[in-house]
Design a protein around this nucleic acid. Sequence first.
DNA 1: GCCAACGTTGGC
DNA 2: GCCAACGTTGGC
Length: 286
Amino acid sequence: METEATTGADTGPNFWLLKAEPDSRIVKGKDVKFSVDDFEAVKTSPWEGVRNYEARNSMQKMKLGEKALFYHSNCKNPGIAAFAEILKEAYPDHTAWDSEHPYYDPKTKQDDPKWFMVDLKFVSRAQHFVPLALLRFITDSASDSPPAGLEYLGDAGVAAIKAMDLTTRGRLSVQPVSEAAWTAIQQLASTGGWDELDLNPKKKSPAKKSADTADRPARAAKTKAKAKKRKAKGSDSEDEDEDYQEEESDAEVISKTTSARRKRKAPDDYQELPPTRRRAKASSQE
DNA sequence: GCCAACGTTGGC
DNA sequence: GCCAACGTTGGC
């Protein structure tokens, strides 16, 4: 059974945002770089390596032909670089079983896949790259109306942008986008018009080291408010996720994390963990 | 390179 | 089941 659309639409298509890293970054000896240039060159790409439940759940809701925003993350100038669409609906992410792969997950079994991916088709570049800084500029503005030059967005477009997860949920790499936000982004990408805006106001004064982080508390408050809302209406980060709590016990999921954590803190009365679920799980293997 | 935010872990 | 601790994400 389908859960209803995360975006609130009950019948129409959903819209999505997926993040990729345009800059080289080496993980387990492999470069995980995937820029809009790479995407445009290959035209289609499996979206492998997602290892977050909420992101995965979103991917499992994606339907053939639904539209997505291609986002540049973890780079100098993050933002929306292209438009894409779903070419193939969710199927098991085989890279989880590939020990050579940067996102190898040794705990998942081929007969019980935990991670999924979709195939994405490149549609077009954003004629005007839509920088995160612009979306933040709009989101952080006290006004309900568009800034000068972007009147075409209308108040509705501004409201949609302000409601986007992108600005408040930085770590979510696959997220739903409302249709209104989709439209607003498309308008921005095709029209531009923010060259006159100072998207990076206030460089920190040398005296005040924390000047450029001064707005973070305000941001945090917004983030919290939204998180509360999600909780209230029931986030999908955990539902439909049978293994969510059980998996933790065996913990090699991301080995680096786990091994470090296992080492953490041995209180004086530390005796060697009484095996609990971990043992049960391990012995269930034949 | 720094560090706030946040998802996950795991002791209690 | 709560929540402190931890490591990672990702903007800056």
